[in-house]
Design a protein around this nucleic acid. Sequence first.
DNA 1: ACCTTATTCTATCGGAT
DNA 2: ATCCGGTAGAATAAGGT
Length: 336
Amino acid sequence: MVTLTKLPGAPARARPTPGAPEPKPENAHDRCPECGGTLARDPQHAEILCQSCGLVVAEKEIDYGPDWRAFDAASNERRAHTGAPMTESLHDYGLSTTVGRGSRDAMGKAIPSSKRLQIARMRRLHQRTTFGSGAERNLARAITEIHRVASALDVPRAVAERGIRIYRRAAAESMIQGRSIEGIAAAALFAACRLAGVPRDPEHFTRASGVDKRTLLRLHRLLVREFKLQEPQPTAQDYIARFGSKLHITHVAEARARELVRRADEKGLTSGRSPAGVAAAVLYLGSRDVGEPRTQKEVAEAAGVTEVTVRNRARDLEPVLDAPMRVEPAAEPVHN
DNA sequence: ACCTTATTCTATCGGAT
DNA sequence: ATCCGGTAGAATAAGGT
């Protein structure tokens, strides 16, 4: 724990800003004894130093500012001063205690040899009853597995922990019986990835976890159904900006494309279709509508779909084309 | 393990500009 | 020559029995 510093009159700060030693000018009466320059405090290093000559006036200052106080259970948890952080990564959240091995008791007194045997026995029993129970052991196995696969696939730690949380829930609701731990573990991590918006290819999962793709997806569906997990579904709108900029179209064309998607969604013309394909088609039609046409080939390439798909989606969209959003005045003047 | 359904992809062709 | 529009069959996804 870093000792915090605080000068009289300075605002109380409970926590140093991490990574920013921001020396701040202090009050006028705080002057450097050497050069008379302004003093500043550096909470990171618990020092007070002169801004002009760099003299360290005081070190290891005590923070006399108010301590953090907790008024409810939630802040109590956040503001607790002791203990390792809780984590999903250990089967018992890292909160369990164990019987130690030392030859001295908590007060530092030597433990008489007559009691040593008894304590060793307690330790053994304690371990067996906590970690040794079937459910705990399986949970630990699952967590190990999730971490293993997560690191093989470069899944961020926070996402892996979310996967573990899902697994715990599945275990709590007796969904593991009759299914493989590895399978549920992989599916839980897979679901966590999708929920976090960083989906992984099921193929990679299969390779990293040894769970075959079909099983993985089936268990994943089970988890989604049971827990009503809401995965963010990418929409065509999400892709328009990205593909649009690849195609170097103007905002006018992009706006037209968005308008088309909106109308198509209303009429249910996009459901079941790949959002990338829809995005490609509206960009094709939209850019053409506003007089900066792109070929099917170009939009297809930008969207990573084939020209056929562009054509098919474009054909689907015909019903919404009859009321074009005229951005520029009609090109052809009428003579008569 | 096998079957069903829907969608997209690959490959290809003919017509239009 | 390139673009466009359409078709046939393979591949894939998701699902059910």
